[in-house]
């Protein structure tokens, strides 16, 4: 009788132990290491590609507005707190044959976050600046000082826009 009781107790304990193991939640974990490469980029869109100034009486219109504002779209990717810069630079003075108008007579106003007004030069002049990457959009409206001293002609100059994202 005693043997039967002990046998039952042992069996019950074994069953309990087994069911505890069976009931326990099991987990398995694995790890995947992710690497993402993000390089610096600079993308600049300027339009229209050409603007013009119509002839006008210097007394009536001392400052000539350009035919259209230039839309400037900037996209840049750089380091955290990296300085993104946008500059303009003229290839030279406004030229018509052997005549010229000093490029400093060309100025601009600007609209848009980070864009700034300025005066054109044959060295790089800041048109915009931002901290960190992202997209920016603004407009640049050119103005040409109108003077009685200018010799007649059709003058041209080429402006180079440079976006830098370090």
């Amino acid at each position: 009788m005693t043997k039967a009781v002990w046998s039952g107790v042992i069996t019950a304990a074994a069953v309990l132990l087994c069911s505890t193991q069976a009931m326990a939640q099991q987990t398995d974990t694995k790890t995947v290491t992710i690497t993402a490469t993000v390089n610096a980029k600079a993308k600049l869109t300027v339009g229209p590609a050409a603007v013009s100034f119509a002839d006008a009486d210097p007394d009536v219109t001392p400052v000539l507005p350009a035919s259209a504002a230039v839309t400037v779209d900037v996209k840049s990717r750089t380091t955290t707190n990296g300085a993104v810069t946008l500059t303009v630079q003229s290839g030279g003075n406004l030229v018509s044959g052997s005549d010229s108008i000093a490029i400093a007579n060309l100025t601009w106003t600007a609209a848009g976050t980070g864009f700034a007004a300025g005066t054109m030069a044959t060295t790089a002049v800041s048109l915009g600046g931002w901290t960190g990457g992202g997209t920016q959009s603004g407009t640049q409206s050119y103005l040409l000082a109108n003077s009685w001293d200018y010799k007649t002609g059709t003058y041209t100059a080429t402006i180079t826009y440079t976006l830098t994202a370090p």
Partner: peptide
């Protein structure tokens, strides 16, 4: 475009 540059893990 707003991501900072680097090799991220």
């Amino acid at each position: 475009w707003t991501h900072p540059t680097g090799t991220f893990t």
